[in-house]
Nucleic acid binder design. Sequence first.
DNA 1: GATGAATGAGAATTCATTCAT
DNA 2: TATGAATGAATTCTCATTCAT
Lengths: 193, 193, 193, 193
Amino acid sequence: MRKAKTPHDPEKLQAILDTALRLFNKQGFDATPVPMIADQAKVGTGTIYRYFKNKEELVNSLFQRCKQRMQDAIFAGAEAHQNFEARFRHYCTGTLHFALEHPAEFAFLELHNHEPYLNAASRKIEDSLHGGLHRFLEEGRHAGELRNLPPTLVIALVLGAITGVFKDRHVSFKKAQVAAIVDACWVMVRAGA
Amino acid sequence: MRKAKTPHDPEKLQAILDTALRLFNKQGFDATPVPMIADQAKVGTGTIYRYFKNKEELVNSLFQRCKQRMQDAIFAGAEAHQNFEARFRHYCTGTLHFALEHPAEFAFLELHNHEPYLNAASRKIEDSLHGGLHRFLEEGRHAGELRNLPPTLVIALVLGAITGVFKDRHVSFKKAQVAAIVDACWVMVRAGA
Amino acid sequence: MRKAKTPHDPEKLQAILDTALRLFNKQGFDATPVPMIADQAKVGTGTIYRYFKNKEELVNSLFQRCKQRMQDAIFAGAEAHQNFEARFRHYCTGTLHFALEHPAEFAFLELHNHEPYLNAASRKIEDSLHGGLHRFLEEGRHAGELRNLPPTLVIALVLGAITGVFKDRHVSFKKAQVAAIVDACWVMVRAGA
Amino acid sequence: MRKAKTPHDPEKLQAILDTALRLFNKQGFDATPVPMIADQAKVGTGTIYRYFKNKEELVNSLFQRCKQRMQDAIFAGAEAHQNFEARFRHYCTGTLHFALEHPAEFAFLELHNHEPYLNAASRKIEDSLHGGLHRFLEEGRHAGELRNLPPTLVIALVLGAITGVFKDRHVSFKKAQVAAIVDACWVMVRAGA
DNA sequence: GATGAATGAGAATTCATTCAT
DNA sequence: TATGAATGAATTCTCATTCAT
């Protein structure tokens, strides 16, 4: 009388996800054979297929977990009563801190974003982040806080800028620079320049 | 006294590169078999191996060509006598125009940037772009035109912002917005905000 | 002082055999995973291996049970004092009735007959049926009741004909036709046509 | 400019089909790995997949070729002006001769008939044989030549009987017995016993 | 030089069987 | 004793690359 179709030894699951994240980052998705993940996660090859229907479901599950954690980190601790600028800075800072504290997760999200093997569910979770930011910026725009640009464009500019900082091979990024970057982002989008 | 080691039917070469670009963008590098490229480029499979040692060399060659064309487009028409801001705007505008006019090339460069199959030569060409921008920004910084940030960071922010605009699924980007985006980039980095 | 080496919950055993018969008929032997049998029989996978050494022993055991039941059905109620023709008709009728009443068992025996995974024991039980019929037909032949053909050939013809009726996808066979078929079989083999 | 999607080195194709037939007969379909077929056919594994989309298409193609050859053999040389009995005997004789001359093909058709991996096309070709016989027997029935049984039943009886002769492990069948078997089949189905 | 059929190494996935609980 | 999660050997199939034509 099986209850759970998906078995759950949380340690094994974690070992698989951690190993997959590391290897996908290092070698890419296609260049990483499933048995190699199994080996390094210290589980049998077949075990991976008890936790994930196939390799694609593994990478999507990984993507969604990381994305969700990042979203949670970004929005955590935001105070609704704060003024727009404060909240904007809070979100930017949260994103930068997440990237600093979870570089592998952040890199994974960036490198595998828009890959053809990501499925609808993965794209949906991304849309949810976008939706939240969109509403936030729409609010700021109506309040006259923002430069007169479509919110989607603003999101793309800011996220792009922040992402760029981490993706660029030449930048060695440090915590001390977070404030300066957040500042740059704010002046980029605020009204009345 | 020709060497004639490598064949040179420029039309065939172009057909191969065009087809590869299209298929890599649509399906990804690993999901695109060499025979499929050959088919759609209307050449024999073996022919591709006369122009490129292997699949990796093909993708790298493609990457380098695209990157080079983008660099040329960015720096083309820049006048040394213009002031810093004008040149900054010129470069940003050039990048955005290139992306608008060559969306496939631009997408390819973004999607395949940092992939493990890119080789040293591909990374080197990227470095050269970076070097040029670095010198330019260093100059602006000394002249007190720039916010007090390391030039590498500025490059990452600006390129990231511009790239973000094109990578974001939600943005439908139009030529009319170029000026606004360039403006946002300039205020982000200029001194004395 | 029980041995208790092999477990004996007859209900579980029956559930396993019934489920295996059903699934082997529907999907074939190789296409039926042992865990699927366990699932549908509502027992643990490992339990099957307490009743049968391996998958092959399971299918052979099933085969032998079915074959034995069919033999018993065929020979049941035959009266030694009846004349040859009556007994011949009795056996044919018995076979047809068994097939009508136990279509799954009969189909299983036909579909899996001669499969490479059947072992010596399974072939032996078939030989015993053949031996019985052989003796019977030899007797009829000596009594001048039969067409001048080797008994093995007669057995093959009659069993083949009866089997053919059930295997053919186009025939929808009914009880009312039993007598006619038995008749056809009898004229096929009787002497003095 | 490829003409044929399916390549055709007829010798290779034949080697693959011959080897597959032999191994499927000896070991069964599922127990025969594709590389084993390739090995013994002296071709590369990949080559098989140039001639057949997958293993299932191979076995179906094989089935259809064999079935077609058998049908052709059965109906070859039948004279429309002959009387019903003569044609009936002709078809039975043709079937028996085909089985004697092509035992491997005949065994393959019998052993793999009704297997779950046979597709619609394979079943259709079988139906066409059945249809031809059906029309022939319907004619004989109207002419009062046949025992009062549905033609489908007659087909099943006769084909079953003939098949039984070859499938039975105990029968060593010889050409000299063909006439006697055909005779038995005829008396089984003719009118007015 | 150009071709594309052939190849076989390597990848994803399945499933019979085991064994710790 | 019964279980079913875990395993890894074995299988199907793909595709980068070669080479005879």
